[in-house]
């Protein structure tokens, strides 16, 4: 099979976030809220009660003034491939009602709000806190309901939600391609809202299997790493940094162990479906 034909069938959509570019501006978060009808409340200061599909963390190197450095780490759902890259991501394998699933053709971990019954087992399973629970009925004050995006269903109280890699945008692009008689979606036809909103273009998105997509090379770069790689969750969200202290913040290291000892983030890409 030619390379082209191979990735026609299965894609592994992924994201590469360049931490050397990210300024922590928060546009990606707001872009995500606006695109995905994420509700808000009067007080959002308890981040463990706040619906955030994407959260940008500020970390520092712990050194005293003026040797301090800071770095921002945006964190959406990692769209984990699971231990053996078979789609048994931590959350998918535990959901008793198949309300969250691994979409084989794209690698996107979906969430079906109308099937989820809110047991929160998936939240317990997700090491990245990517999953958020609707503790309250969502409320949009005044006329704010008017801005809700009709492509994304609004979630009811009592269910879990999370970053979907803006799957509805994929569906739209796919439908459009279908109508136009194409089987391939171009790289720029499917871009999530956060990548689009990022003013510094720190977020790159595409098919990790497709050598023509930017993420292909980027995810294989020496600067690439993933969060909590040792857990073998196999995220499809990669990060780039030139700072070794940032890499130390991304995983747990025993005394004397160093990120440099680790294999490059992108292990030989063997597991194609």
């Amino acid at each position: 099979m030619t390379k082209q034909a191979q990735h026609t069938k299965t894609k592994r959509y992924g994201m590469v976030i360049d931490l050397d570019r990210c300024t922590g501006c928060g546009a990606c978060m707001v872009g995500c809220y606006a695109e995905n009808n994420v509700p808000f409340r009067k007080d959002e200061t308890d981040k463990m009660l706040s619906l955030n599909w994407l959260r940008v963390f500020k970390v520092d190197n712990g050194k005293p003034f003026p040797d301090t450095e800071v770095c921002y780490i945006p964190k959406p759902c990692m769209q984990c491939d699971g231990r053996h890259m078979e789609g048994h991501s931590p959350c998918v394998s535990v959901c008793p009602a198949v309300a969250t699933d691994y979409d084989e053709p794209t690698g996107v971990v979906s969430q079906i709000y109308t099937r989820c019954f809110g047991c929160r087992y998936c939240m317990a399973a997700c090491p990245y806190h990517a999953r958020k629970f609707n503790w309250w009925d969502p409320v949009w004050p005044a006329d704010m309901e008017k801005y809700l995006n009709p492509d994304v269903s609004v979630r009811m109280r009592g269910v879990v939600e999370k970053c979907s890699f803006c799957y509805h945008r994929y569906q739209k692009a796919r439908d459009k391609a279908y109508v136009e008689g194409r089987d391939e979606i171009a790289e720029n036809e499917y871009q999530p809202a956060c990548a689009e909103a990022c003013p510094t273009r720190a977020i790159t998105f595409g098919d990790l299997h497709n050598p023509e997509h930017e993420v292909y090379e980027l995810s294989r770069s020496k600067k690439a790493f993933r969060l909590l790689e040792k857990l073998n969750t196999n995220p499809k969200v990669y990060y780039l940094t030139s700072k070794s202290w940032v890499r130390r913040k991304a995983d747990n290291y025993l005394e004397g162990e160093s990120p440099a000892d680790r294999k490059p983030a992108h292990k030989a890409e063997t597991a194609s479906h």
Binding site: V94, P96, F117, Y121, V160
Partner: peptide, 26 residues
């Protein structure tokens, strides 16, 4: 009590995921 959507609790049987320990428990 502990599930967010008690009225849909039976989905655990209806849409059962055999891989899930919670399904087994249920």
């Amino acid at each position: 009590l502990d599930i967010g959507q008690p009225l849909r609790g039976w989905f655990i049987f209806w849409h059962a995921n055999v891989h899930s320990m919670l399904t087994e428990v249920a």
